[in-house]
Design a protein around this nucleic acid. Sequence first.
DNA 1: GGCCATTATATTGCGCGCACTTAAAATTGC
DNA 2: GCAATTTTAAGTGCGCGCAATATAATGGCC
Lengths: 159, 159
Amino acid sequence: MSENRPAAERPAAEADEVSLLLDDQMCFALYAAQRALTNRYRPLLDEFDLTYPQYLVMLVLWEHGALPIKSLGKLLQLDYGTLTPLLKRLQAHGLIRRERQASDERSVQISLTEQGAELRKRARVIPATIGQAAGLTATEAGNVKALLERLTANVTASQ
Amino acid sequence: MSENRPAAERPAAEADEVSLLLDDQMCFALYAAQRALTNRYRPLLDEFDLTYPQYLVMLVLWEHGALPIKSLGKLLQLDYGTLTPLLKRLQAHGLIRRERQASDERSVQISLTEQGAELRKRARVIPATIGQAAGLTATEAGNVKALLERLTANVTASQ
DNA sequence: GGCCATTATATTGCGCGCACTTAAAATTGC
DNA sequence: GCAATTTTAAGTGCGCGCAATATAATGGCC
């Protein structure tokens, strides 16, 4: 297959065509990195009985306090199909409360329990541990973050 | 909360502690970008009745030809729990064959059907379309790819 | 040649993530 | 003030991903 040769050797007709090779694809690097990183979080989060998406919800609640599900979804870019059962599990673990708003009976307010708020102190170690494991300089991590955010904005807009 | 102020204003005790703020986390940018990109692939792959992980399997088969499941797993960094049912679905769609190796009855060889091989021609458009939507320069995409691969290697090694 | 560790795959269970549908409350239009 | 529309959430179904377990074939090893 011509794709197994370096670009310089390929026929001109294929020169401007993007490769179908796995190793040429930034998308696969992204896909693999996301799973590898989530796997790295797992042993850390196991100590709190949290999954990575659940940890993200806790981050938002620690930062913003009580929020309706809708707002959680906007911040995390997740829909109700994901959040509704996830939040019920967090509630079952005693970390959050779910309460209908009196002002708008459609809305469900999510707030931290004492126990959920407590967890924050112990969780402070996690970002540093992950930062260590990632092995990127602050500049590199910042660059990746900025480029990924542009990527997300671009592909979301072109839908 | 002190985390809502810029780093310069924070007390010294917190200065070298990594933030728990969602927006400060490269990990969330990675998590969000991966999902956004997969969502961008979806309408393209729907035309081939493929999911993104199934598309990755097809990429590998187009590139390498027939392979045992084990090798597919190594290349894609996926385990049997993911691959076994995924490959059965690809087989049900008539894109691949699954055959026990005579030389080693434990091994299952995965090969492309005529129809699976045919698909490659039509799939050639996909990388270019995604590249357009991503809106990064080739240099930027290359940098992200390289940094993500380092990240993956680092977090995998530190397990 | 039979025992034992290893290897390749399958199965089960669970938690996302997303599409699609349903339902109830709130808002808007007239 | 009531019908039509919009908003917020829940329910269902399906395909990953991964942990844990099971099973069968292989390869030493004595």
